[in-house]
Amino acid sequence: MTEAPGAAPGPEPGSGAVLVMGEALIDLVPVAGDAQEHRAQPGGAPANVATGLARLATPSWFAGALGNDGFARSIERRLVSAGVELGLCVRPELPTALAVADPGPQGTGYHFHLLRTATFQLPERTDVERFAAVYVGGLAAVVEPAASAVATTARAAAAGGPLLVVDPNVREDRTLDAAGGAEKLRELCELGQVVKASDEDLAHLWPDSTPDETCRRLAAGGALVVLTRGSRGSTAYTGSAEPVSVPAVPVEVVNTIGAGDAFMAAMITWLVLDGVQPGGGVRELGRAQALEMLGFASRVAASVVAQAGTEPSLAQARV
């Protein structure tokens, strides 16, 4: 396993840089009008977030693992073209993981092909103090050996330095350890200073509480918690203040894959640009600030939903 090729890993991250740790894989997505045919599309929640950050002009460093096949080269082209820094990636001599997408009326499900792939061969990173924020989530948070590396990195971020941002992004499939994965994701959510989760995520992780109750409990512990409900909009919880909500941006839906990741990238961008600091900064987020953040993130997510693909548009988000 080697670092990304080249004599140097690239420039040092600046004050507003974001470290994104997790998987980059290939989504096999059904072609419209022909359910038997699938199109290969670079994906993985963390890779989507890293790409979204770069598209939104936020310095983005992806700490993932890219394999040695044509799919890995396709993923690399996507990340590089967006402006993502790959100097922290590793290159195992293994193929790329695949996620077969299964869109349905309740959202998109996935079936995973993960065995002996490069995608989850992540080394832990403890040099997190160089970054303004650290994002963790996706399959890498639950699939070993990546999960252990993600947990170590998250603990290092939570101990002091950058803003730790967590998206549990719960996935269900026979290839995943449901009980062990849920335990890992709950730990990350408890560590996170910013947590973005869907109502389905929280119902899976804390089935004995309503999503609202879970959000209020996490927020009371000092986190900024954002609950997303798809077409029903999003809600931000901070401290003991009453939550604030915004509706989803009305748009003709073309595609839902990557919308949550675009929302996450927009949230991080807003927090970094606004200079929100770890700890007290997120607890003291005011109502007007929370509404502004949610509105921006909703417009960015809508820019993805309205097109085929997962690339957000900053121009549309500003409209």
Rank of each mutant, 00 (worst) to 15 (best):
A158Q: 02
F120T: 04
G33K: 11
T310K: 05
A266F: 13
E190M: 12
A65Q: 03
A35F: 02
G33L: 10
V136Y: 03
P95Y: 11
R55S: 06
E200V: 14
R130A: 15
V272N: 02
V254H: 14
L114W: 14
D173R: 08
S313H: 09
V276A: 03
G33N: 07
D34W: 08
T228Q: 04
E76Y: 00
D127A: 07
Q289A: 07
R216F: 07
E37L: 15
A118D: 12
R186M: 05
V142T: 14
R186F: 06
V170P: 13
G233P: 05
L202M: 09
G67S: 03
S245K: 02
P95W: 04
G275D: 09
P168L: 03
D27P: 01
N255Q: 14
V136F: 00
R125W: 10
A151W: 10
G180N: 10
F263G: 04
E144N: 11
G233Q: 05
R171H: 04
S313V: 15
L314K: 06
G161C: 10
S234L: 09
K184W: 12
D212L: 00
A297S: 11
P42W: 07
F131S: 08
A17P: 12
A24I: 08
G6H: 09
F263P: 05
R91L: 09
V29S: 11
R78A: 13
Q277I: 10
A203E: 14
V254T: 06
D167E: 12
M21L: 15
G83M: 03
A182K: 06
A179P: 02
L66T: 13
T238N: 01
P211A: 11
G10F: 06
R186W: 01
R216Q: 12
L66R: 08
L202Q: 10
V304L: 07
V272K: 03
R299S: 10
R229N: 09
P250H: 00
V305K: 09
A151F: 03
A132D: 09
T228R: 00
L94Y: 05
Y110W: 04
L79A: 00
S81Q: 12
P95G: 10
G239C: 09
A288W: 01
R217Y: 13
P59V: 06
P5A: 06
A101Q: 10
